[in-house]
């Protein structure tokens, strides 16, 4: 009998007397010890690699720290300055646009392709890999460079448009109106990892539900709405939470496409890019740390809101 199933048997048998309760607690404690032992490598990493630097960065966020001189305590100064920093507000606007537009589009794309692949076509492993590929490449420098060349005035996109007789002279990457959208497009293109998770989720939905629904005369669309979506909702929720967190941290694409400037005219100034500029270009690590903590709070709030609303639409089978 494995430890887990043993534990669940104990939990199921209700403890009646205080003596039994104590025994049970002891039993559980012993199991926890083993659990913590197994977790130890991860816990050490958490404390040393994540916890320590996080506390340090929390401290630094209350200081004026140039990296070169010792940090100097300034209280809430950095946070107050953030209120009146136009570039910070711009970077928030850019990042929110990216998350709010990019993530849903990417998930819809992922789900659509996953459903297509779930139709039991031949050579599924091949197509799955091909569609997954952009996910691995998407945040790479090479692809960002390629993106820049595709969307410039004489880039591939405009050349193709011209072949069709459309006089395309817009620089999608150079015009502040469009530059962010090319990066959102890049984000949507990297739909591979949520797609693979969707695909796994779709495979878990028993085929008999669909058969029964067909017998009752339900249309494909009704089947999708009444069977696929509810049964897939935990997976959708999972992907949504993860992708939102990921999208808030987007950095590489914007960094490479704009050569680290967030240009043109700050139209691709992602929050993390601005944080980097403050910390490493302007030597304001205190301010950058404060910005990092604001991002933690923003992501925390988004995740909490997600979990709160999940009660209303996420359906757990068990």
């Amino acid at each position: 009998m494995s430890a887990i199933s043993e534990l669940s048997t104990i939990h199921r048998t209700k403890a009646k007397t205080p003596e039994e309760k104590r025994l049970l607690a002891k039993e559980a404690g012993r199991d926890n010890k083993a659990g913590y032992l197994f977790l130890l490598p991860w816990l050490i990493g958490l404390v040393l690699i994540i916890g320590g630097p996080m506390i340090a960065s929390l401290y630094l966020s209350f200081t004026n720290y140039s990296l070169i001189q010792a940090p100097e305590w300034v209280g809430l100064d950095n946070y107050v300055r953030m209120l009146s920093d136009p570039r910070l507000h711009k970077s928030l606007a850019v990042t929110f646009t990216y998350v709010i537009v990019g993530v849903p589009l990417q998930l819809i794309m992922a789900l659509a392709v996953a459903m297509l692949l779930n139709e039991g076509m031949k050579g599924l492993p091949f197509y799955r890999s091909v569609f997954y590929l952009p996910s691995m490449l998407g945040s790479s420098v090479a692809i960002a460079v390629l993106w820049r060349q595709m969307f410039e005035v004489d880039g591939l996109v405009n050349q193709v448009l011209r072949k069709f007789g459309i006089p395309a002279t817009t620089s999608w990457i150079g015009d502040p109106q469009y530059a962010l959208w090319t990066i959102i497009l890049l984000h949507v293109w990297t739909f591979g990892s949520p797609m693979v998770i969707f695909l796994a989720g779709l495979r878990q939905i028993p085929g008999m539900y669909y058969e029964a629904a067909s017998v009752d005369g339900a249309s494909k669309w009704a089947q999708f709405r009444k069977i696929t979506l509810p049964l897939l909702s935990p997976i959708i929720f999972f992907n949504l939470v993860l992708q939102i967190i990921n999208a808030f941290q987007a950095f590489t694409q914007a960094f490479v496409v704009s050569n680290g400037t967030g240009g043109p005219a700050d139209s691709t100034l992602f929050y993390t890019l601005y944080l980097y500029q403050r910390g490493f270009v302007q030597f304001q690590m205190g301010y950058a740390s404060a910005m990092a903590w604001l991002l933690v709070v923003i992501i925390g709030v988004f995740t909490a809101v997600n979990f709160y609303f999940s009660k209303h639409w996420v359906f757990y089978g068990d």
Binding site: I4, S5, L7, S8, H11, L46, I49, I50, P53, M54, S57, P234, F237, F238, V241, L242, I245, F248, Q249, L275, Y276, G279, A288, A292, L295, V296, I299, G300, T303, F307, Y316, G317, D318
Partner: peptide, 29 residues
């Protein structure tokens, strides 16, 4: 199975949040 799907997802969410902060902490290579 003692872990239901909801708990798994909550755990995964927590992991992701931890990964977030790690990304930030790792700003100083």
């Amino acid at each position: 199975m003692a872990l239901n799907r909801r708990q798994f997802l909550v755990g995964a969410g927590g992991l992701a949040a931890a990964a977030t902060t790690m990304g930030l902490g790792a700003c100083a290579p």
